[in-house]
Design a protein around this nucleic acid. Structure first.
Lengths: 269, 269
DNA sequence: GGCCCGCCTTGACCTGGATCAATCGGGTCC
DNA sequence: GGACCCGATTGATCCAGGTCAAGGCGGGCC
């Protein structure tokens, strides 16, 4: 690398400010029943019994954040903890000179916030329109105390996130640009396909990318240009097809997974 | 970067095998009372009342792993969870071609293992001689269920580790070699000094590095050579003195912290 | 239709850090 | 004391990915 990117600091900051202003545009939605909730069995409430669920139901509220809007700002007070019900959000840090690194990608059922602390150390932004199921922090902390099923689920989810963050560290520290892009595409495949049978990449897959090239670059610790060139290179080598800039077809997942040096789901097992 | 390092794959693997053999050299130590334990108020047991502590005391055992020894191997069964009582251990992943990335550095009071799962996805190795306070997994999982103070403490510690991992992602994804080394030194200062008053780097500090240049390189996602050159460059610029290869004196912490682009504890706040 | 505006792609060139290869100490063993 | 070893340093060179700078392309708007 020829020094991490410092370009577009002004543009970057402008985008962030725009995002902050969008906070005012949040819309309130009517509650819907937990029993109907699409993330009922994967979110922080997954292991709740009906009593516990009733308590959560009482304190929850919904919030929709528009695409590009800010969900939380590093260092600022955050009085709600929430689950992503739909949409996609990013966790990232922007350095003072504009360099940015994404450190988390939040999809439906992922949890935002840190019980026991009122600030986060990272920015959380809506990549697409995001609907949140929110809990006022104090109330939620009480529930964590009284409901072991919520506490246990939260611990499991946090441990999973820690594993993801550490795999991501390996990607950022040691993989080449091509390996990073291949790994990114396969991680999307894994998430799409129920994220259970990881390690088995067989057949083909059609992907809709949730991120722009710029955000993919932020995710992978690369520049937009390098990211774009790697997509082109993978296409030229017949590993992927790109019918649209947000569409990727992988004709042979096993062959693509070889590009990550992995023999069972990534060099990053 | 000119492509992540792929050198020394054979040597690396040999070292790992040597480490594995060391498992057989583990020594058993007599128990000592929890009330006398140096990590009593920082480890997973920190919030236990005397009843809970008594239960833990009953199932705990000590284990000393020699320097270079293996504490856990990625993917292999691990039937004990443990706290580091003394010494220093690393969490890392080695790719099939020998590239290695450290993703965690364990110091006294840090916890090893994942309740609810019998394997880890990373290797854990003793950087120096390490003494562990171990709990058989099944028994410990029972305690987590019955003792909310242990469960809560475990959640807090895991959330802290997640923040550390994400800051580390920013370092690996976006900082220059010089910034990485400066950041590494300052993170050691912070850990040494009670790790409370972070953000305030004033005065000078004398450091004993817990890691060799090779392991520092694994930590920072660099090669040994680049790491060594950055130490030399910081010395040449008067930011540090190097009385011995494991000794670093920082005459002006504030000045060194400017090298990380940070104005209150790192660009990585 | 034609213009504009955001993305995305592509090309030419540069450079930070990797690679390859000595060399330098300090420690240990005979 | 000398030979050896192993980690650390330093030098010379290379190259992956960053930087700078044009285009290309699809979608919305008049």
């Amino acid at each position: 690398m020829a020094g991490p990117s410092r370009r577009n600091a002004a543009i970057t900051l402008m985008q962030i400010n725009t995002a902050n202003r969008n906070v005012a545009m949040h819309m309130r939605l009517a509650k819907s029943a937990c029993s109907e909730c699409p993330i009922r069995h994967r979110a922080v409430c997954a292991e709740c019994d009906s009593d516990e669920l009733a308590v959560l139901e009482q304190i929850k509220s919904y919030l929709t954040v528009p695409k590009g809007g800010s969900i939380a700002v590093a260092g600022e007070r955050l009085d709600y903890l929430s689950s992503v019900v739909s949409g996609c959000a990013s966790i990232s840090k922007t350095l003072v000179d504009g360099r940015r690194q994404m450190v988390g990608l939040l999809l439906p059922s992922d949890f935002i916030g840190r019980p026991g602390r009122s600030t986060l150390s990272f920015d959380v932004d809506a990549v697409s329109e995001v609907t949140l199921c929110r809990f006022e922090r104090r109330a939620f902390e009480g529930i964590v105390k009284s409901s072991p099923n919520v506490a246990r689920r939260l611990l499991t989810m946090t441990l999973d996130e820690l594993d993801i963050a550490r795999d991501w560290q390996v990607l950022l520290g040691r993989l080449t640009a091509r390996e990073r892009v291949a790994h990114f595409l396969l991680s999307l495949v894994r998430r799409d396909s129920g994220e259970v049978d990881d390690g088995l990449f067989v057949g083909s897959a059609n992907l809709t990318l949730p991120l722009s090239r710029e955000l993919i670059a932020d995710y992978l610790g690369l520049t937009i240009e390098t990211t774009s060139r790697q997509f082109t290179a993978l296409r030229r080598d017949g590993l992927i097809e790109i019918p649209g800039s947000r569409q990727v077809f992988v004709p042979d997942l096993a062959r693509l997974s070889l590009e990550t040096m992995d023999d069972d789901g990534g060099p990053i097992a």
